[in-house]
Amino acid sequence: MATSTKSDPKNMDLTLRIWRQDGPSDRGHLQTYEVSDISPDMSFLEMLDVLNEQLNAKGEEPIAFDSDCREGICGMCGLMISGHAHGPEKTTTCQLHMRSFKDGDTITVEPWRADAFPIIKDLVVDRSSFDRIIQAGGFISVNTGSAPEANAAPVPKQKADRAFQSAECIGCGACVAACPNASAMLFMGAKVTHLGELPQGQPERWARVVSMVSQHDHEGFGGCTNTGACSVACPKGIPQDVISTLNKDLRTAMRQGG
């Protein structure tokens, strides 16, 4: 197994405790693996690639985990790394590099845990509940071809900037994973704020928030208790303010009898 000869003195030997689960109905368990000679320049997922190659060679099925762009933008990756969503740095799992760890470290790797994100296999979860929240109202109803001239409605810079900041959400689910209540308010707040700051988003604003929040609750996410753990975990730095906006919009909707 792990050989302690390192090809570079900067390289590391690590102990990994990784969640293995055959399928949705399997109970799952943490399994311990050793990896050696890990370069600090590798990304965390490349380190898992190396482990998977080893497992494959030994005839053990590789560990399933999600990733696609590996650039921190598609939101496909996401692991709980020693208790931190996306690991100890403020970034996505795919952009986390091994130089954030030290030789001899033990790293525990778990999937996002939330009942609204059921586990498919090993570290892969089903986040389609996010899509359904968007289906409930996370859009502006405009049919192709019916759009007015783009510069017809100027947007004050300040509003445009806040809309943009909120639109940076990549839908990774780290906010849910880190939240003690497994609530998706940060994700939802980001969308409600993005669309609510823009003039184009006004007509559907109050109906949108009510249906999105209802869908959120229906999916089985927890309620928010404003702990802020979401924002700390968010790789895009979506601030907790968006949840305040979400709350305010819901209150307004309620006043209007929504």
Binding site: I140, A150, P154, A160, Q200, G201
Partner: peptide, 13 residues
């Protein structure tokens, strides 16, 4: 561009 702006795409302004 018209279509995207109407959808709420936050282009730089």
């Amino acid at each position: 561009i018209d279509q995207c702006v109407a959808q709420g795409v936050p282009f730089a302004r």
